[in-house]
Design a protein around this nucleic acid. Structure first.
Lengths: 141, 141
DNA sequence: TTAAACCCTGTACCATACTACAGAGTCAAG
DNA sequence: CTTGACTCTGTAGTATGGTACAGGGTTTAA
């Protein structure tokens, strides 16, 4: 089997041609063999790799992290522990983001509740909150 | 009063000089008057504006959105409703992000629980999940 | 007077994940 | 044999929020 051209790979994987080349530049996809005229000819499993990239992205992994996961994927001596450790690190990262967003949401919700939404902006409690010192002794810290 | 030079504004506000000029380019701070030699001379309330920017950022507003808030701030005929509406839109935006992150976290947590973390990467359930079709009929959608 | 400290503009760079060309060569069908 | 579809490289642009110069001019304090 000689391989598949980039256009067919992209179409099957549901991404743009430019994206496939971009993933190659970023080290997510191995540079494939070429025809005499320089056309890329991809092995059949490339579509699966692009799907892997998409799935990992949906789980919050960056392209750099996905490159590492793909390296593990192809390393015969990689371990489950390495994958699990990365998964747990990502969970902690997500938890940190959720906590930060929850903090923002609580403050905004309280402010919205304290604002009548009626009349001139003068004395708006939301604006007043943002005018404050942003003190180092912030009660939410 | 002639005004304050950029270095003092930056120091008092706790940001870099470049950041002050950047905020001016982005339309967050009005271009201040200049000395004959071209030095910026800021009005005294500029430090408060930069604090406003920092506080609004901590609540999740982008610089573009903060520029709008600052415009409202200086508009005599602005209303509380306009501020409250932006606040509620931001709350919804944050809720969407939290839901997306929570979705990721749940999947990752389930996957981590299903992985023994022992032995070769062969058969790792986390990797297998990422190899899947990423189907259109995903049960989490 | 001279050196340090300050300020100016303009541009380029960091990460992230692409997207969009221009200008050229190649391949397949009719 | 020509036309359209495909591919190539390389570069630049998108949004976000800055940071970091280079290569000047200015101000201030000793």
């Amino acid at each position: 089997m000689t391989g598949v051209t980039i256009g067919k790979i992209a179409k099957e994987a549901g991404v743009g041609i430019e994206t496939v080349r971009f993933y190659e530049r970023q080290g997510l996809l191995d540079p494939p063999p070429r025809t005499d005229s320089g056309y890329r000819l991809y092995p059949a499993d490339t579509v699966a790799k692009i799907r892997f990239i998409r799935n990992a992205k949906l789980l919050g992994f960056s392209l750099k992290e996905i490159a590492e996961l793909l390296t593990l994927h192809d390393a015969p001596n990689a371990t489950k522990a390495e994958v699990k450790q990365r998964t747990q690190a990502k969970i902690r990262e997500i938890e940190t983001k959720i906590m930060e967003l929850t903090r923002m949401k609580k403050i905004l919700t309280d402010l919205a509740a304290s604002c009548s939404g009626q009349g001139s902006i003068e004395g708006c409690p939301i604006m007043q909150a943002m005018e404050g010192q942003g003190s180092k002794r912030c009660h939410s810290c």
